[in-house]
Design a protein around this nucleic acid. Structure first.
Lengths: 276, 276
DNA sequence: GAGTGGTCTAGACCACCGG
DNA sequence: CGGTGGTCTAGACCACTCG
C-alpha cells in the first residue's frame, strides 16, 4: 500500500495532516530534522525533501539555524486594487488608486490592521528593457548612454510584519518637472494627486499579475528561506490624459497572508467590508 | 570569491546564463545530470538541486525518464479579465465577462491564437467550505447531509497546448431552475447570458488572486514535473441584481505562458490590442 | 558549546523511455 | 537493452543562533 507513494510524500502528508488537525499549532516548532529522521527511520535528505514540500505550500516557515515552524494562518489582509474609498461615488480617484501609497494605509485601517511603510528609497538608474517598454521609452543601442529612470522603492508592513515591496518607476524627465519624486520622503497628498497637480491626470491603468519564485532580496525581507512559496507580482502601468504611460508600479506580495482582489460593478456592501 | 556562493547556485547561474544567451536554445535538451555532475565534479544531488532552481523559475521543463529541456519562451497569451469586446461602449456584458467561456475563445482569436476548450465535465458534489462561503450557503453540522453544488469543469487549450483549468460552482437549486447548467455541453449563448435569461443578471463580481504549487491533477494536465513553477489561481465570485452570489469560478493558469491583466479607465487602444 | 538547518558526497536501486 | 531522471542512504562539514 504505502509502496506506491514515495517516502518523503508520506512524511509530508503526515506533517500536513498534523498541521491541519491542529496537532501542530501555528507558530509551533516542528520536530527537528534529526528527530524526524529517527522517528521515520530515513536519512536526513529525505526529511529535508518532505519539509521542503510544506514550505512550498506555505504551511511551514523555516528559519535557517533555528528550526521549522508552522506558519501563521493567513491573517488575511485584503488588498483591493481598484478603489480608494467607500465615500462619494465620484470621489476623485475612486476606482483608481487602491493598493498604493496612502491608499494602502487607509485600506489597512479600515480592516483594523496597522500598516506602515518605510521611507521611500529613491534611485536613478539605467532603465531595464521591461521598464522602458512599459513607460514608452525608446531603446538605444547598447554602446550609447542608456536612458534612465527614477525608482522609488518602499517596504510595506502590516501589523509590524513584512507585507510587500513596492517599486515605482518614472521617466527622468517627469521627475525633473515633478521634483517631489526625487525626494526620499512620502508625498503628502499621494503620488496620484501630486502628479495630477503637475499636469498628469491618471485616467486609466493596466494591471498584470504574475507568480514567480522570490528573489534573494525578497527572501530576506519576507524572512523566508529558499524554496518557499512563490510571490505574486502585480504590475500597474498608469496612463495620463494624453494616453501616455507615466508611471510603472511593481508590487511584490508574499502570498498566503495577502488576498489580492478586484471588484467590478455592484457587489453587496459586506463584500467591500470583508476584511478577515 | 566563488567561496561565498554555494556550488549548486553557481551551476544554476551558469545554466541560466547559457539559456539567456541562447547557447542553450529553446526546447534543446540540457546535458544529462550525469554529464553535468562530471563536468562540474560534484555529486548528482548537487546537480539536481541546481536544475530544480531553473524548474522553479520556469526556464526548464523536466520530463522524468527523458531529460531536462529548455522551456519554450513564454508565448505570451494575454487574458484580459474585465472586458469582452472592443465594440459598443454599452454592449451587454462589457466589462463583465472577460476570460470566461466564449469570451476566452474570442480573446484568443483577437490575438490570433487558436483556443478551444474541452466539453464541460459536470459533477454534483458536496460543497467544500470555501465554496459554501463564497456562494453564501449556510454550513450544516458534519453529521448531517452536506449541501451540494454543481461543478462545471473545463480544460482550456491555446494553440493546442494546455493553458488553464476552469471550475465553476453553482448552488444546486440554481441548477434546477437553470438546467442547462447540468448538461455536459457548452452553453450556446454563454453562461452569463443564459443565467440572465433565467433571472440572474450579473451586476458585479469580486476577483481574487493567489499563487500556489500545482496539485497533482494540474501537474499532469500542464505536463509539468514536481517542483515546477507555481500556478496562478483566479477566483471570481459573481453577484446578481439582488446582491446574491450565484456563481463561483476558479481558474488555474500556468504562469509564464499567460499574462493576466485588468484594465481600468481609459488606456490607449494599442494597449487593448497588445497581444504578444 | 550544543543544537539547528544548509550544503555536499559517493554511492545505490528503481521506473520508465527509447531504440 | 542502455540511458534517463526520481528516490534514498549514511554519513560529513559548515554557519549560524542561542543560552
Amino acid at each position: 500500500m504505502a509502496g506506491r507513494v514515495s517516502r518523503y510524500t508520506e512524511i509530508a502528508d503526515d506533517l500536513r495532516d498534523q498541521i491541519k488537525r491542529g496537532a501542530l499549532a501555528p507558530s509551533a516548532q516542528l520536530p527537528t530534522e534529526k528527530e524526524l529522521a529517527e522517528r521515520w527511520d530515513v536519512s536526513p535528505n529525505t526529511i529535508k525533501k518532505a519539509v521542503n514540500e510544506l514550505r512550498q505550500e506555505g504551511l511551514v516557515d523555516t528559519v535557517p539555524q533555528k528550526g521549522s515552524f508552522v506558519a501563521e494562518p493567513a491573517a488575511p489582509f485584503v488588498i483591493t486594487l481598484n478603489h480608494t474609498d467607500l465615500g462619494e461615488e465620484n470621489a476623485p480617484g475612486r476606482g483608481f488608486g487602491g493598493g498604493e501609497g496612502r491608499a494602502f494605509v487607509a485600506e489597512a485601517e479600515r480592516q483594523e490592521h496597522r500598516a506602515n511603510s518605510s521611507k521611500p528609497e529613491v534611485q536613478v538608474e539605467d532603465a531595464e528593457s521591461v521598464h522602458m517598454k512599459a513607460l514608452g521609452i525608446t531603446p538605444v543601442p547598447p554602446d550609447q548612454p542608456q536612458p534612465q529612470v527614477v525608482r522609488r522603492s518602499q517596504q510595506r508592513f502590516v501589523d509590524g510584519k513584512p507585507n510587500s515591496l513596492q517599486h515605482s518607476y518614472f521617466k527622468l524627465e517627469l521627475a525633473i518637472e515633478a521634483q517631489a519624486l526625487l525626494k526620499s520622503a512620502d508625498i503628502e497628498e499621494g503620488t496620484v494627486a501630486y502628479l495630477q497637480s503637475r499636469g498628469h491626470v491618471q485616467t486609466g491603468y493596466e494591471d498584470e499579475f504574475n507568480a514567480r519564485p522570490p528573489k534573494e532580496e525578497e527572501l530576506k525581507f519576507f524572512g523566508l528561506s529558499r524554496g518557499s512559496l512563490a510571490v505574486i507580482e502585480h504590475t500597474r502601468t498608469a496612463y495620463d490624459q494624453r494616453g501616455e504611460p507615466f508611471r510603472l508600479t511593481i508590487t511584490v506580495y508574499k502570498p498566503g497572508t495577502n488576498r489580492i482582489r478586484f471588484i467590478a460593478g455592484d457587489v453587496p456592501a459586506e463584500v467591500w467590508e470583508r476584511g478577515s
